[in-house]
């Protein structure tokens, strides 16, 4: 395919998909190891009331108020889950189920009750986004990448996601040792003076930032899939955290690229005219990767601590 077609239509969604996938998979590694995998699920549900409230307050669908609203909602949810768990002495899974379903229900209700007919805000969009719509209209080919005028019209989601990815990578690199130690042996981490509670909270906040930034571009379903599937598949490939993170990044990128390509061109290969949801397809491909790892992964079994082969 020529650059004249690829750059305006596919480059931006493809890159955005890759950035989202990696930004979610990195914190996902630690969440999966800490058995907090469903936090991503909870966060991506509660983002909806946050952006609806932000919309009702400002009356427009603009970036910053929405991000703030979503982040606020994520914070409310974390506090709420912790509160229900402690005050009611309720197991954390159930506490999570109570809070995120109630907040999501509240968001849907607010959305249905308010007049959103002239803006692009609905439940379906929140669930599976619209990656395909991120087209770069002013691009004419690869040369546009050096053209300041064309770059100015780049869809805002791409640079935002790139910044988020840089932030997530920085967090992972800077806090690598504390994260690793506290994930595998929290007691030891505490005895050498680490603030494991704070670190755990920071991890959840970073995950929330990645989820919130990704959410607007690609919807919540891909966020949940990328938090869990690539790290879980990577977990079945190796016993070393460094390699697991590397595998998860590879899996995330493969899922994003293949998912986008299959969604856009797969139906054409099969003789259909229209493309299918890219977000849904990326989630599906990540599931296939996890399935393959679960059947063939060298470290798929419990207790396979010794290297196989």
């Amino acid at each position: 395919m020529s650059g004249a077609e690829f750059v305006p239509l596919s480059l931006v969604p493809l890159l955005t998909g890759i950035f989202v996938a990696v930004a979610c998979a990195l914190p996902g590694n630690f969440l999966v190891l800490r058995r907090q995998a469903l936090i991503g699920d909870a966060i991506s549900h509660v983002v909806l009331p946050g952006i609806v409230v932000a919309f009702l307050v400002t009356g427009a669908v603009t970036t910053w108020p929405m991000l703030l609203g979503a982040a606020g909602a994520a914070l409310v949810a974390v506090i709420g889950i912790e509160g229900v768990r402690r005050l009611g002495q309720i197991e954390s899974g159930a506490a999570m189920g109570v809070i995120f379903t109630a907040m999501f229900a509240g968001g849907v209700l607010l959305l249905e009750q308010s007049d959103t007919s002239n803006v692009h805000l609905d439940v379906e969009h929140a669930l599976y986004g619209n990656l395909e719509s991120l087209i770069w209209l002013d691009a004419v080919g690869w040369s546009s990448l050096w053209d300041a005028q064309a770059l100015a019209t780049l869809p805002v989601e791409l640079p935002r996601m790139a910044i988020t990815l840089v932030f997530v990578v920085l967090f992972t690199v800077v806090f690598w040792r504390p994260l690793k130690i506290s994930t595998f042996d929290e007691g030891f981490a505490q005895t050498i003076g680490m603030r494991t509670n704070l670190l755990g909270l920071a991890l959840v906040i970073v995950a929330a930032i990645a989820a919130v930034a990704a959410f607007d571009a690609v919807g919540s379903i891909i966020v949940i899939a990328m938090f869990i599937c690539p790290p879980a598949a990577a977990r079945l490939m190796t016993n070393r955290l460094e390699r697991q993170v590397a595998w998860s990044v590879v899996f995330a990128v493969v899922a994003a690229v293949l998912g986008y390509v299959f969604a856009g061109y797969g139906p054409l290969w099969l003789g259909f005219a229209d493309s299918v949801s890219a977000a849904g397809m990326i989630a599906t491909v990540s599931g296939v990767i996890l399935g393959l790892a679960a059947v063939f992964g060298p470290h798929r079994l419990r207790g396979s601590a010794a290297p196989v082969g």
């Binding site: 379903i221 891909i222 949940i224 949801s277 977000a279 397809m281 989630a283 990540s286 599931g287």
Partner: peptide, 10 residues
Amino acid sequence: LSVFFGFGIV
């Protein structure tokens, strides 16, 4: 949850 739902969306 995410993979089945994603496939359903497709």
